[in-house]
Amino acid sequence: MSERHRFWQRALRLLSLEIPREASSAFLDGEHSLQQEMWLRSLRKEKQQQIDMNTPLGEVSFMIIDMETTGFSPQQGDEILAMAAAKTVNGVVKETYSTLICPEKAIPPHISALTGIQAKDVLHAPRLREELRAFLSFIHGGVLIGYHIGHDLSFLRHFLWMYYRAKWSGRFFDMQPMVEMIRCCSCPTLDEALQYYGIPCEKRHTADGDVEAMAKLWKMLLEELKQRNIETLHDLYAALSMR
């Protein structure tokens, strides 16, 4: 088979994955393997899968996630410094994932002061382009959950589109409205939620430390949701929609 024939065969496969034409060139060089295509295909397949809304909450794989970033806007050049996740079932942590990320630009001093992440810490860490696929593979098939999870999702979606021209549209929940629904009062920060439930967090503002604390918080919230007869995904969506 000629190289030209292989090129067009590969281009057609990429089109079948719904990768836009302007992004296809990034996948047609020798650095991207058939494994890369298979991963993109699985990502597309996951988007098409529907989770049964009558599934009991205790049977759902909830992926608790957290990211440390250099700011609030990936569109303005802010980057991811660390990512962590924990797979939980019925409030029990089954697997964990965490990594530092080497950013393209220098870490702002105030971010180092907040997170404790210094330039020397990320010197040998992977670039986000290298590690994003591992993170996505870990959370694959689960329902994402976190405190102010919109921040993490904005970065996830931005860089997934930037690097792969792919969209992520999986299910997710924010813990904040759950806490406020149960407490019947405002609870704008994770610190306040942890204090209310008496959960210590020695590594606050680190991705793995925050995920560990949120896993404990989620276990408590899950019990309280069940006590309120909120037992399925449908029940949880309905309860949150009433707020």
Rank of each mutant, 00 (worst) to 15 (best):
R129I: 10
I139V: 15
R21Y: 11
Q118M: 15
S24C: 06
A85I: 01
R10L: 15
P200E: 07
Q76D: 13
I117Q: 04
E18M: 04
G150H: 02
I51C: 03
G198V: 12
Q48W: 04
L156D: 02
Y237V: 00
H110C: 02
Q35T: 06
S154I: 11
A239R: 01
A213I: 07
L221Y: 06
L17N: 02
Y237I: 12
L156W: 07
M38F: 03
D210N: 13
S61K: 09
Y163D: 04
S186P: 12
L123P: 06
A106F: 05
M63G: 07
N229A: 14
L132T: 08
L132M: 08
S61V: 13
C102W: 06
P103M: 09
A213W: 01
F72R: 09
M162D: 11
W8V: 14
H151G: 00
E31K: 12
I51K: 10
L222C: 04
T96C: 05
L144H: 01
L81P: 05
H205M: 01
S169Y: 12
E68L: 14
F173I: 13
L57Y: 09
T232A: 13
N229T: 05
M67V: 08
L233Y: 02
A238I: 11
S154R: 14
D78S: 11
E18Y: 03
I149A: 01
T88S: 10
Q195M: 12
T115V: 06
P126H: 04
E192K: 13
E18Q: 09
W8K: 11
L156N: 05
K203I: 00
A113K: 08
K219M: 05
H110F: 15
S33H: 10
Y196L: 12
I64H: 06
R13E: 14
S25D: 13
E130G: 09
L160K: 03
T55G: 02
I145K: 08
A119E: 15
G77Q: 13
C201T: 10
H124Y: 11
E224I: 11
L136N: 12
T55N: 00
D52L: 03
E18L: 14
K167E: 10
V60C: 04
M53Q: 03
A82S: 06
T69L: 09
A193L: 05
Y196S: 08
G77N: 10
L156C: 02
K167V: 12
P177A: 08
Q118V: 10
H32Y: 08
D152C: 07
D29Q: 13
A84Y: 08
D191V: 04
F72Y: 10
M162C: 03
G116C: 15
Q36R: 10
P109K: 08
I145A: 14
A82K: 00
C102Q: 14
S61I: 04
I111Q: 00
M242L: 12
L225S: 10
P56I: 10
S42I: 04
E180H: 05
S16Q: 14
D152P: 08
A207Q: 05
I149R: 01
L156H: 03
Q48C: 03
I149F: 05
M53G: 04
C184Y: 11
A213T: 00
S16A: 15
M1G: 15
W218S: 00
